[in-house]
Design a binder for these strands. Structure first.
Lengths: 184, 184
DNA sequence: GGAGACATGTAAGCGGTTACATGATTTA
DNA sequence: TAAATCATGTAACCGCTTACATGTCTCC
């Protein structure tokens, strides 16, 4: 249930409407916690019902500006300090690795090469985004850069792993053909 | 919809019952694609309906042994070669990083230190699991080791990132106190 | 005969995605 | 005045989790 805390965290930086928050989700948070419009509006309603945020202003076109309440700030702090981050284990990229033996060796290698290429692309994309980000000293920027660094390191790790895996695969393949030669 | 492909992939190594598969999910695949019992039995039913697997034997206690069909193998290969793995972006660990400015500096640092400790623990856990795995040359073991290596590298990356982030935070903190001294 | 493992299933609820639906305001 | 943007909301569906529910077989 982290969308609620994401919304709470954004509102902690100042009042905003659902529409405002949506743009932040789709820009700054898209790589960390994407959210859809329908989800966000529903969650803001629930947050208001729970007393964690309140409508502080109503503007044109039915715009509702929300602000976090004291209870909301307390909940946010609780989530930040007391709730252990969940570890995501699910990876269909790694799941495929388990079943690569169902493919011809060349296709298995091709899969890993695609991962390698994807990691390189990802790293380049992130670098481009990083350069476009202002080097402000404000909190969201400082911590945003720390999160960005995680992404860059993750992409690098994935690249190096794919390179290593391709070599491992080649080694295993060699052994196998050597074994076949022995048998023949 | 990867549970279906996970089941298909496991059955590609030989016929098995839902109960058999469940143990594999909870042992070998727990770090890659965890699945619950209710989910798995339901999916096997759907796979059978779709003609991707069939019941090849019925044993004691209502045991049903499933085997993958030609259509199932084709679907598995399709998924392995043609379907781009999804990139998971959602991380409540990184989401918290964005909101660390809502905490006292000491608490923010504490959060990062906890991540560091978690990464070290994770790496040790994986090493222990790795040593317990037989060094078989069979496909599931070979590719299992490649997946394991990903986990180890991921934990290492996370450890190094946390160490780096703690230093960054200290630097930012220094700058801030220096700024305050200037102003004061 | 009881415990523990084997074995399969259903139901309620939750978070997330996609699609639908509506309307006001600003700007070219 | 038409297009783009601003702005909020609902509904259907899907995958996953948790809990419930039932029954069989083996071994001590």
């Amino acid at each position: 249930m982290s969308l609620r805390h994401a919304a709470l965290g954004l509102l902690a930086h100042g009042p905003a409407s659902g529409y405002d928050l949506l743009r932040i989700f789709q820009q700054s948070l898209v790589n960390v916690w994407p959210a859809t419009q329908s989800q966000l509006y529903a969650e803001l309603g629930r947050l208001a019902d729970a007393g964690l945020v309140t409508v502080v202003a109503e503007g044109a076109r039915g715009r509702k500006e929300y602000a976090v309440t004291d209870a909301g700030r307390a909940e946010l702090r609780h989530w930040l300090t007391d709730v252990e981050p969940t570890v995501h284990r699910r990876s269909d990229m790694l799941l495929r690795v388990f079943f690569l033996d169902q493919l011809a060796p060349a296709d298995a290698e091709s899969y890993l090469r695609d991962r390698l290429a994807a990691a390189i692309d990802r790293h380049e994309d992130l670098l481009r985004i990083k350069e476009a980000i202002p080097t402000d000293a404000d909190a969201l920027a400082v911590y945003g850069r720390i999160a960005m660094e995680w992404g860059l390191r993750f992409a690098t790790m994935q690249r190096e792993w794919a390179e290593w895996a391709i070599k491992e695969l080649a080694k295993a393949q060699e052994k196998l053909t050597a074994g076949e030669a022995d048998a023949g």
